[in-house]
Amino acid sequence: MFALAGALRPGLCLPWGARQVLDIGCGTGVFALLLAGRGVDVVGVDPARASVDSPGQTGQCDLARRAWEAWTREHSYRVTQIPGTGSVESWVQLIDVSRPLVSFRWTYIFAADGQVLTSDSTLRFRERDEVETDLVARGYVVRDVRDAPDRPGREFVFLTQRPDLGVQDTQAVDES
């Protein structure tokens, strides 16, 4: 696992009182950066180094119920201008759907030198009750489940508490 951490304006907290957040499966860190921008101490963890190393404008940010149906070049093609790098073409293509696993490939073409990079990934889409059951089995009390503020209707945020630690954590999980 690789981690992306950030903290801005210490002392501010989220409405539910959390001052520290662990964003598991952070992808490119869009949710983590949103929280850090609000002054929350954030650690984002993702098993894909390429996601964590990304500058944040590409990656797994549009995951939703059956999102993979739009994972085609036609639906995902974009050109991004990256300072110091130039334009980068990118798109995602579906490789395989074997629920709960969905495999896909991101392709990036750098205009400056024509270099082509690909990144293959597989995501596991879990149901809300499955995530809640896992959290409870690991000693967490689920206090609330909300929409992710940066992806309403497409991703859950689980507000949990470990009674033995007295610390609130959040975990964003894509809906399936």
Rank of each mutant, 00 (worst) to 15 (best):
R124A: 11
T107Y: 04
R49N: 08
D174Y: 13
P47H: 02
D169T: 09
L94M: 09
A36P: 02
T85C: 09
D41S: 06
G86H: 00
L14K: 01
H75A: 15
D96R: 15
S54W: 02
R49Q: 11
D129C: 08
P55N: 10
E69F: 03
Y140M: 10
G153T: 04
E127W: 07
W106G: 09
V97R: 01
Q161E: 13
R73A: 09
S76Y: 00
G27P: 01
E89W: 04
V167I: 11
G37D: 07
R143I: 13
D150M: 01
A3W: 15
A36N: 03
A5D: 13
T85M: 07
A137N: 05
G114R: 04
L123S: 11
G17N: 07
S119C: 12
T107D: 02
M1Y: 13
V52T: 03
V45I: 14
F2D: 10
A7N: 13
R151G: 11
T72R: 02
A50I: 13
D23V: 06
L12H: 15
L135N: 02
P15W: 10
L135C: 07
A148Q: 01
Y108W: 01
D23C: 01
V42N: 05
L14M: 07
G37V: 09
P149A: 09
S119P: 09
E155G: 10
G11Y: 03
D23Y: 04
P15L: 04
L35H: 01
L123W: 10
F110A: 05
P100D: 07
V45W: 02
L35M: 06
G39K: 06
W71H: 04
F104N: 02
P149I: 03
G37L: 05
L165G: 10
V173M: 07
R105C: 09
D147Q: 00
Q115L: 12
W71P: 03
V142N: 07
W71Q: 02
R38G: 04
G56Q: 03
V40C: 00
A48S: 13
A7E: 15
F156S: 05
L117G: 10
L101T: 10
D96C: 11
T85W: 09
A7I: 14
S121E: 13
G166H: 00
P15N: 09
G153E: 08
Y77D: 12
L33C: 14
G153P: 00
R138H: 14
P10K: 07
G166I: 08
R66K: 15
G86K: 02
R49I: 14
T170Q: 12
V116R: 14
D164K: 03
I24Q: 04
W71G: 05
L165W: 02
S87F: 15
E175Y: 12
S121H: 13
A50E: 15
P83H: 07
R162Y: 04
S51D: 10
L8K: 13
V40M: 01
R49A: 11
A67M: 05
